[in-house]
C-alpha cells in the first residue's frame, strides 16, 4: 500500500479543518481544543496538533490530507507535517485582511521547507465581505504563475476543484523536470 500526503495550511481560522472535512472519507481525526486566548476567540475551538483526513484511491494507494495548526505557537508542527508532502494548499480567509500578511509568511515558510507545488485557496468566497481573488493576489504579492483559486471550504465541489488544480500543478511540475 502506497500512501501520499498533501498539507493544508493557512492562518488561524482560515478554514483548514472544514476543507479537509469536506472531502475526507473518514471522520477527520481532529485535535481541536477550546481557544484559551481572548485575542483569538473568533471561533470556539482550534486545531492544536493537526487534522487528518483520508481519501482511498484504490487498493494500492491512499491520499492523506494533513491540516496544520493555525495558531502561531504551534508552528513547530509545520516542519514535521511538511516532510515528504506531494504538494500543499494555503487557505486564506478572504474576509479577514488582517490575516493576509500571516498567510504570506506561512506560504514562504512552507516553500522553504520543501519546493513542492502549491496553490492558494481564497476561502469564504461566498461571503459578502470577501476580497476578490484578483485583489487577494495583489495583497499576497503572489507570482502570476501561482494558482489562486476561489473556494468555499465547506463545499465539497469547491474543495475538489482546489485539490484537482494542485494535482494538475504537480503533474506539470513533474513533466518539466
Amino acid at each position: 500500500m502506497q500512501t501520499v500526503k498533501m498539507v493544508v495550511t493557512g492562518p488561524f481560522a482560515a478554514g483548514k479543518t472544514s476543507f479537509i472535512r469536506s472531502v475526507s472519507e473518514i471522520d477527520v481525526v481532529s485535535t481541536e481544543r477550546k481557544i484559551s486566548t481572548e485575542a483569538e476567540r473568533i471561533k470556539e475551538t482550534t486545531t492544536v496538533a493537526m487534522d487528518f483526513g483520508r481519501i482511498t484511491v484504490d487498493d494500492d494507494l491512499v491520499l492523506y490530507l494533513f491540516g496544520t495548526p493555525g495558531q502561531k505557537r504551534f508552528d513547530f508542527m509545520w516542519e514535521i507535517l511538511s516532510e515528504g508532502m506531494l504538494g500543499f494548499i494555503v487557505t486564506v480567509d478572504s474576509t479577514r485582511p488582517e490575516t493576509f500578511r500571516e498567510a504570506k509568511g506561512i506560504l514562504q515558510t512552507f516553500r522553504a521547507y520543501a519546493p513542492t507545488p502549491y496553490v492558494v485557496a481564497a476561502n469564504k468566497q461566498d461571503m459578502e465581505a470577501a476580497w476578490t481573488v484578483e485583489d487577494l493576489r495583489i495583497a499576497l504579492k503572489l507570482d502570476p504563475a501561482v494558482k489562486m483559486l476561489p473556494c468555499v471550504a465547506s463545499d465539497r465541489e469547491s474543495v475538489k476543484k482546489v485539490l484537482l488544480e494542485l494535482l494538475y500543478s504537480i503533474l506539470e511540475d513533474m513533466e518539466k523536470k
Binding site: 481519501i55 484511491v57 506531494l86 522553504a112
Partner: peptide, 29 residues
Amino acid sequence: PPQARQVPAVDKRQQSSLVNRLIDRIRSL
C-alpha cells in the same frame, strides 16, 4: 532542510501514473 523530500523516489512514468490516479479519484468524489 533535511526534511525536504519530494514525491516518493520512483521513476517519472510511475509518478505521473500515481498523480493521474489521484486526479481520477478526486474527480469521482
